[in-house]
């Protein structure tokens, strides 16, 4: 399977939801759409699912020598942002109904259900009505509903929302299992720590536009964020003293005798170390790579005025 999105745009009334967004997803990848509320993630997902069509640009999905302009239903497992099931029906009845609509036989649906209910520790509760479950458990049932028929492509809109950290970790494991089973996954999320663990490729969006795209490493390079160095000192030193150094742009005091330095743009790491060693004796030197959360915040801060303008 390969999905190629080329310069798609979509407007609703006076709102330009998506502007000239392009990306590519290859088979077996986990692809993350990141961005704040209203960034255009769900609009892209709805175009991929075929609920709406792009105003311009193209979507091309290739699967076993076939080509489509949106994901065909038989290949798709979908968890919409606006989601819910039948609260007055049991987990088993809900899942069986959706699985049979996907074309699964009852026996196949039940065996798949057994597997996924076990993964999410819901086996003992399969005959309970959905309304009796917590929000988190209902979310798990919906994730199962999206993959029960073993689709080639799974699209999950905000799969982590409403889950506590323990259940978020379970979803991470669930997504890794999908990847291991050869499914391609597209997800949208705010939870950067989760996405960082999972996504092969990602697209950061702001106000309908693609801001950063690629692998985490690629995005780190693209972001051109300032270099940060964590240091530990033998003797006591103040942040103000370190701030005096030409090589240091800013200083953040961590715990005792530990600091996070942001290096000035035109100074090399070795020059910075030379300046430091003239002042203090070091116990720790560690270059800090910005995590996705920091990159995301930096990107949003950088692009928001530009987009607004």
């Amino acid at each position: 399977m390969q999905l190629i999105v080329t310069a798609i745009s979509k407007a609703y009334a006076s709102v330009q939801a998506v502007q000239q967004v392009s990306f590519q997803i290859n088979s077996g990848e986990i692809f993350a759409l990141l961005g704040p509320n209203g960034a255009g993630k769900s609009s892209i997902i709805r175009m991929l699912v075929g609920m709406t069509q792009p105003d311009s640009g193209s979507i091309m999905i290739s699967y076993q020598d076939e080509h489509f302009d949106h994901v065909p239903r038989r290949l798709l497992g979908y968890l919409p942002e606006d989601r819910g099931l039948y609260p007055d029906k049991s987990i088993e009845k809900n899942l069986l109904y959706l699985a049979q609509l996907h074309g699964l036989s009852k026996s196949k649906a039940l065996s798949e259900m057994d597997y996924w209910l076990d993964v999410f520790d819901l086996t003992d509760r399969r005959h309970e009505d959905l309304k009796q479950l917590s929000k988190g458990n209902q979310q798990k049932v919906q994730l199962i509903a999206a993959v029960l028929h073993q689709p080639a492509l799974v699209i999950l809109d905000e799969p982590f929302s409403g889950l506590d950290p323990i259940n978020q970790e379970k979803v991470v494991l669930f997504l890794k299992q999908l990847k291991a089973k050869g499914m391609t996954v597209i997800l949208s999320a705010h939870q950067m720590a989760m996405v960082e663990k999972l996504a092969d490729h990602m697209l950061l969006m702001a106000q309908g536009r693609a801001v950063l795209a690629g692998t985490l490493q690629h995005i780190q390079q693209q972001s051109q964020s300032r270099r940060r160095m964590k240091i530990g000192t033998v003797s006591a030193v103040s942040a103000e003293q370190l701030q005096q150094l030409d090589a240091v742009l800013s200083v953040e005091a961590l715990q005792a005798q530990h600091f996070l330095l942001t290096l000035a743009d035109d100074v090399s790491v070795s020059d910075c170390l030379k300046q430091l060693l003239l002042q203090v004796e070091l116990t720790l030197v560690e270059m800090q790579t910005p995590d996705l959360h920091q990159l995301y915040l930096a990107a949003m801060a950088k692009h928001k005025p530009e987009v607004a303008a």
């Binding site: 609920m51 497992g77 919409p80 989601r83 819910g84 099931l85």
Partner: peptide, 13 residues
Amino acid sequence: QQRVTEQLYAIVT
């Protein structure tokens, strides 16, 4: 209101 519709749309026409 139970927000099942969009999920069903992805399965049946």
